[in-house]
Design a binder for these strands. Sequence first.
DNA 1: CAGTGTGAACCTTTTCACAGCA
DNA 2: TGCTGTGAAAAGGTTCACACTG
Lengths: 233, 233
Amino acid sequence: MSQRPVPEATVGRLPLYLRALVDLAATGEATISSETLAAAAGVNSAKVRKDLSFLGSYGTRGVGYDVAYLLHQVRRELGLTQDWPVLIAGAGNLGHALSNYRGFGQRGFRVVAIVDVDPGKVGERIGDLRVGHLDDLAAAVDEHQVAIGVICTPGEAAQGVADRMVAAGLRSILNFAPAVINVGPEVSVRKVDLSTELQILAYYEQRKAALEAVASGAEAASASLSAFPAVGR
Amino acid sequence: MSQRPVPEATVGRLPLYLRALVDLAATGEATISSETLAAAAGVNSAKVRKDLSFLGSYGTRGVGYDVAYLLHQVRRELGLTQDWPVLIAGAGNLGHALSNYRGFGQRGFRVVAIVDVDPGKVGERIGDLRVGHLDDLAAAVDEHQVAIGVICTPGEAAQGVADRMVAAGLRSILNFAPAVINVGPEVSVRKVDLSTELQILAYYEQRKAALEAVASGAEAASASLSAFPAVGR
DNA sequence: CAGTGTGAACCTTTTCACAGCA
DNA sequence: TGCTGTGAAAAGGTTCACACTG
């Protein structure tokens, strides 16, 4: 496959480029410059060029990138030329929402199983699926060749569920539970914490409020407001 | 308030420490070392000490940090000594789930309004709330002193909603829609993209599969598997 | 003497700036 | 001529290692 290692930061942006390219392909544009792609993805053009250069030399100097070709290359690099069966653990609010989320299917992620421990939830229908019991996780992983597990349980249950996932052979976990989970080095974990994001916003919001209090006071606050990053990621 | 600017990366970890400290306080521990806090937060101890040193010298050499005191300081730094009223735009799957998510309330974020454009959703009850119309967004922001807006709409609608939020005076936005939104530099935006996270996992999963194919082939793959970061953030 | 606080080294990521090519 | 691809510089973040202190 692709030669040198792609930096982590770049991998994190490839899905952004992918989305922009999909939108662009729909409009019928044949080629795109790094400048335009950068605008669509919300980054700067130097970053786009550097990132894409890790995948290979897919651009044409003086012209730009061929949309269809680049789209294919980014998809291939991300491993999205195949479908990925996904299992969700936890059929609460969030588990429900994710199971029904159309965006997953559109991007090649098929939710093939949902499990929970609550007897009141086991057996419930969600879309085309029936909620299974957590004890059947390993069987479901085997049966559907699941590659990625998603944890949507309360924080207390997260580690136990993660252990079962790893035992069942999963090596990629997306964790929505507000808890740190410990797994072996062969397992990739990504964490999405909804409250954390709000807390980070609260931090910057607070600073803005504090600055304004100063500004509305005696001396003009000459310091630029743009000291606040628009995006903290 | 607090003096020197806290690095962005540190701000991003403060909620992690906060959660660990809350758990710890519940167990009754009075003090904690950077080593133990690090384990609870899933980072290393040097990072913990550096991070906390930006808030001030709150530790005691040879002893550690006073849990209750540090908890208070982290809360204060993050601006969590007050409640933050939140408005959600988009009452679909995700909007529903977030409205009902207990974790927000527990951490000082109160969902005070939900709006949508779909006539089938406007008027619907979600918890204690009634879904309002998007046109009433500004009124709701005023009435409830909303500080943070959350976008849970489809991608196409995100920019329009963001524009309304900014026009209504919001300067902090959490965007769950799969789209880049453009706002002025005075507005902080954080983005959570569910599909993006899965795509990143797919990338690493694919590489693992490729490596294993090589390993199970002729020559022993001497390259270490630990080239895969457990967490990509 | 255990554990914080922090300079200094190191590594990653971003940005700059321009040579080189279609 | 216009835009890519990329070295080199700058910025930001992490880790090391140890002086210092309660």
